[in-house]
Design a protein around this nucleic acid. Structure first.
Lengths: 188, 188
DNA sequence: ATGATATATACCACCATGATACTTTTCCTA
DNA sequence: TAGGAAAAGTATCATGGTGGTATATATCAT
């Protein structure tokens, strides 16, 4: 994934659903895609500005009283084309950095009890995520509001990914805990 | 994980195994932990410099003829302590960005055939990784060179993580492909 | 009253990535 | 045997991404 600007496409995608302000985009990403994507203001605002000068979006200022004015962004046909072009491009592999595995790799410098604690904590996180994903899945399937939305199947796929990888996480933790506990027994 | 400097700990970890140059560190990370961690020169060199002024490592210049001199770095007791301190700290969750899921999320703007192609490609990647991990596992278990190294169990754990998550990836792809192919049938 | 929370934009320091620059030795191949 | 690729080695740059902070006001609960 590297140094290509993916924020751009996330923003274009959001704006392809509806015109929005930067603040709205942040709210919507946190609500709808936070299980696999994150954005932050420090990037959203400059990228929106850049995309305006590039002609991918247009801005309309909505006057408010007291609060700062809302800058509402609209995707342009060029912007829509840019989004579709990216959708057609092959997926670029991201650089990987998994902190718990880095710690495990050097874990001979750590007491076994501490490693067990760490992995147990990880297991808890995975389980928490798992139940979170399942809950959202249920709501999506049940909610009449979205019943006929043709995008639902795709949203469910992203959730299912979360379910699969959380389950994998749990089973790795449990396998690892077993080894560590055996190790602890043998060292007594 | 965010803006805390984890490169520092990766480098300290490597130097805790043996004194090395920046070039050596890059080679060793690419060889031994590339399945879950990546480093690049652009960060290795400045971080080594910073750690020298912070007293976590010391440098010894090895004269060579022709080639640039090798800067060999040694971890200090302070550096070792810094590494162990970090090992004891709880794991910080990284910001997540999964490009294929972002594309799936907006995939209603893409022909079903194209989505199928994308997911099939992903499946292939997962399978490739899976066999790669399994092969390394075999070598590690078989290789007499490491037979008695007490760090082997930990290295195997990191590999097993790769196996678990690749398998999860494959099964998600296959589940998703089934849905997409059904969709393609129904649209005919 | 007072403080938390929500709305809204913006900037900054820091961290991370990939590309490129530069040089010499060694090894392979046409 | 000439020529080029690859390896060894350090270093810098532009770009991208993260989290925190600054700045303001309205609203709602305590």
């Amino acid at each position: 994934m590297g140094k290509k600007n993916k924020t751009k496409y996330a923003l274009l995608g959001m704006l392809s659903m509806s015109p929005m302000s930067g603040y709205d985009i942040k709210k919507l990403t946190d609500f709808s895609i936070s299980h696999f994507w994150s954005e932050n203001f420090g990037h959203i605002y400059p990228v929106l500005k850049k995309m305006e000068t590039d002609g991918f979006v247009t801005k309309e200022v909505e006057e408010t009283s007291g609060k700062p004015n809302r800058n509402i962004y609209y995707i342009t046909p060029t912007g829509r084309q840019e989004l579709v072009n990216w959708l057609h491009l092959p997926v670029e592999p991201p650089p990987i950095r998994n902190e718990i595995l880095l710690k495990i790799f050097f874990a001979d410098q750590l007491p076994t009890e501490k490693i067990i604690e760490m992995v147990a904590e990880e297991r808890k996180k995975c389980l928490d995520n798992l139940s979170k994903y399942k809950k959202i899945e249920e709501t999506l399937k049940a909610d009449g509001q979205y019943m006929n939305d043709k995008r639902i199947p795709f949203w469910l796929m992203t959730l299912s990914f979360g379910v699969h990888s959380s389950k994998a996480g749990v089973s790795w933790c449990e396998e690892t805990l077993k080894i560590l506990e055996e190790r602890l027994e043998n060292s007594k």
